[in-house]
């Protein structure tokens, strides 16, 4: 079957199977490989993309469900060859090591900050508890989110 959606402000039309996941379509058909498959079960968050404004584990979204949706992936964040403030914040706080989970964390952060511009530690922890990282020990990620909030004008 054919589905249409908008990904990173571009209209796409792809032929998919009903049992294919959105993650597979993004990675294997559109070669948007920023979202990673860390578990395929919605347990690690490495595949997080934003679907109609909400962060989703794209490994749990069937491709047909994405028909008509507006999707943002990490590839869409930098504009005009400039990094997004969240990306700058992750660099400044060195909120990554191996980098495999990083796109997922960044997309979860973006979805959070768009709804809650100035999140408390508790909110950050709650919103990012579905994203696993084995390298950093997370503390720098919390720093990065706060820094991103500041850069985006949330925190005073």
């Amino acid at each position: 079957m054919k589905i249409k959606f908008i990904v990173n402000n571009e209209n796409v039309e792809v032929e998919v199977k009903p049992n294919e996941t959105l993650l597979d379509v993004l990675r294997e058909k559109l070669f948007l490989t920023g979202a990673k498959e860390g578990c395929g079960n919605g347990e690690c968050g490495a595949c997080t993309v934003i679907l109609n404004g909400k962060p989703v584990n794209s490994c749990l979204v069937l491709a047909p469900e994405a028909d008509g949706a507006v999707i943002e992936t990490v590839e869409g964040l930098s504009k005009n060859n400039k990094l997004h403030p969240i990306q700058e914040a992750f660099i400044e706080a060195t909120a990554f090591q191996c980098g495999f989970c990083t796109p997922g964390f960044i997309m979860s952060t973006k979805a959070m900050l768009e709804k809650i511009p100035n999140p408390s530690n508790e909110v950050i922890i709650e919103r990012l508890s579905g994203n696993l990282c084995r390298c950093t020990g997370y503390a720098v990620i919390i720093d990065a989110v706060k820094l991103a909030a500041q850069k985006m004008g949330g925190a005073k």
Partner: peptide, 21 residues
């Protein structure tokens, strides 16, 4: 010193084996 792999890793352009076709 800031990490030299930073930009690749925050933009999703860092390539891992699974990203190769």
């Amino acid at each position: 010193m800031k990490r030299v792999d930073a930009i690749e890793k925050v933009t999703g352009s860092a390539k891992f084996v699974t990203d190769m076709f």
